[in-house]
């Protein structure tokens, strides 16, 4: 009987020691002020516990859990970017812990370990359908009545006519200079290489997709650039341009010699509202640092264009 009591008290002491060790380490560090510092401190505690010999897996587990809690607590106040950064860092740390654990002989006595395997929020399954996979649909490929454009070609020097209020698509062109003779409704540029596109004011949006080394002179309401690099964009945008998966985008204000004074009014654009220097990068959500993916074109490097 006394043997049993003895074992019981020893077990309790052991459990208490287990519980206290990690939590004291964690509490001390969570006093500090910013969430970022708390996060880094906790991360350090975990890393130190990992480097210790023998490895203190209890402290590691408690640290990871606290990190996850911190992330969820702060998710309301953190920017999407910071919170994604945080969960990425946590996922990396988890992976490291798992690797270390595989190396060290696995001690399977503690049943709650499974918890550490919970995946970071960002890695949720998303693979059921692949939206980018092209599926043949003849209905979509044919041009509708109001669509026009150019597809395929190299070393072209063309001025597109009869494109007023049309949906213009320029695609698969290389080393070309294309001008639009009239104001289109929408302008799509897809897969252009080393091209220059010059257009009078566009009624709605301009889309740029998968383009490289392209100079673009446009005025529009919205300008959306996706998956492109090395673009020089001279633009008049009334409600802001965006880039997504783009690099080396340089922007300058729209200037087109020979444009008639009422060209903006004719398509309902505000001539006096130009947000050419305000580009939103959807891959760069940190508000405090500017995106490295776009910059203003230095004034000395700006070229001039004319409508003809």
């Amino acid at each position: 009987m006394s043997d049993l009591d003895d074992r019981r008290s020893r077990m309790l002491a052991k459990l208490n020691a287990r519980n206290q060790k990690p939590s004291s380490a964690v509490d001390a560090s969570s006093q500090s002020n910013t969430p970022e510092k708390q996060f880094n401190d906790l991360k350090m505690v975990v890393e130190q516990a990992l480097d210790a010999d023998p490895i203190d897996f209890q402290a590691v587990a408690a640290g990871l859990e606290r990190l996850q809690e911190l992330l969820s607590e702060q998710s309301a106040t953190l920017s999407a970017f910071d919170s994604r950064k945080g969960s990425q860092a946590l996922a990396q740390l988890r992976k490291r812990v798992d690797d270390v654990r595989k190396d060290v002989a696995p001690t399977k006595s503690f049943a709650f370990r499974k918890r550490q395997k919970q995946p970071a929020a960002d890695t949720a399954p998303n693979t059921v359908v692949n939206p980018t996979q092209p599926i043949s649909a003849p209905a979509m490929n044919c041009l509708a009545d109001n669509q026009t454009g150019l597809k395929g070609g190299a070393h072209l020097r063309e001025t597109l006519s009869a494109c007023a209020d049309k949906d213009v698509l320029l695609s698969d062109l290389t080393d070309s200079e294309i001008r639009l003779g009239e104001s289109p409704s929408t302008l799509h540029l897809v897969k252009l290489r080393r091209c220059t596109v010059i257009a009078p004011p566009v009624r709605t949006s301009v889309f740029v997709d998968d383009c490289e080394d392209v100079t673009l002179v446009v005025a529009c309401q919205q300008l959306r650039m996706h998956g492109s690099r090395a673009l020089d964009v001279y633009m008049h945008v009334t409600s802001g341009a965006i880039i997504e998966r783009c690099r080396a985008v340089r922007v300058a204000p729209y200037s087109l010699r020979g444009l008639t004074a009422d060209a903006f009014d004719a398509v309902g654009l505000h001539a006096d509202r130009n947000q050419w220097d305000k580009v939103d990068d959807f891959d760069w959500l940190a508000a405090d640092k500017p995106s490295p993916n776009w910059s203003q074109l230095p004034i000395d490097d700006r070229k001039t264009f004319s409508i003809n």
């Binding site: 059921v128 359908v129 692949n130 939206p131 980018t132 996979q133 092209p134 599926i135 649909a137 979509m140 509708a144 669509q147 949906d167 698509l169 799509h188 897809v190």
Partner: peptide, 13 residues
């Protein structure tokens, strides 16, 4: 028209 299939896929998901 260009992205109508993207649209279909995203909705199905």
């Amino acid at each position: 028209r260009r992205r109508m299939l993207d649209c279909q896929q995203e909705l199905k998901q």
